[in-house]
Design a protein around this nucleic acid. Sequence first.
DNA 1: GAGTTGTTTTGATTTAATCAAAACAAGTGG
DNA 2: CCACTTGTTTTGATTAAATCAAAACAACTC
Lengths: 146, 146
Amino acid sequence: MHEFTDQMLIERIRGAGLKVTAPRLAVLRAIDAGPHSDAETVFGQVKTDLPGTSLQAVYGVLTALTTAGLLRKFESAGSAGRYERYLNDNHHHMICTSCKSVQDVPCVVGQAPCFSPAANHGFAVAIAEVTFWGLCPACQLQPQTL
Amino acid sequence: MHEFTDQMLIERIRGAGLKVTAPRLAVLRAIDAGPHSDAETVFGQVKTDLPGTSLQAVYGVLTALTTAGLLRKFESAGSAGRYERYLNDNHHHMICTSCKSVQDVPCVVGQAPCFSPAANHGFAVAIAEVTFWGLCPACQLQPQTL
DNA sequence: GAGTTGTTTTGATTTAATCAAAACAAGTGG
DNA sequence: CCACTTGTTTTGATTAAATCAAAACAACTC
């Protein structure tokens, strides 16, 4: 399941100009193990391999790593903010309205179709965020709402 | 500024199968006057023309009107949930990263281009939500962040 | 005009997140 | 290898957004 060795993670942290600490390694490992996790979920994961870490530390680490460009935060209706490894691949998210699970979806239609709103009203558009809402395969099998 | 008379608003509420009450009228008027408002903003507006209304009532009214299909709620990173009149026009939003102001943008590229993710992983996609982030004209004139 | 049902008020509670100050540790340079 | 500086984490309190429950109340129907 681990795509990255600790050594690789250490290099990524240091490469971003940040000090390498145990909580930061643990957070990166947690995101690697469970992408699209929120702060609480990351905290739960981190606690198991680095007990004594505080939830506030996790928030701080997530914010620092996001600012440094190692992680990306995305927030969507009805859920806490979630984090994933930052990849400059312009992908989007498909979220299940029932179980809130998240799938990555590449943005393939042309290059970056959604970057061009029809009328931009003078806005300098920097990024376009696309979220697809629907029912995941598992939840489609459920008879009704639980 | 008022697009709708009270009589029209009353008909819309009743048409949705809901009882017509003063707070509901006041909330619809507030949304009409300030689209893309959050609950607190609506509350501030409502208070002026119907003092004694509670914030919780505003939350309740917003939820009821949203469930009934008269309003649409949208939530975006860094802001509280906002409400607008529901229009079945598949429009999207352009939000200023600096001042958080919102502009509607029609979805014109073809019909509903964003409804078709490349690989849907078995998801039954119901809606696609597109948010453009950037700097509004006013904030582009600011030398730097305030 | 009285009754039933749906709505609003009042007040407490939850969740997600942020802030500030003190304790601590990573990476420098001696 | 030790001490210093700076950045990080902990501890504890606080905020913002929203939700819940029960009692008071008002809209629509008969």
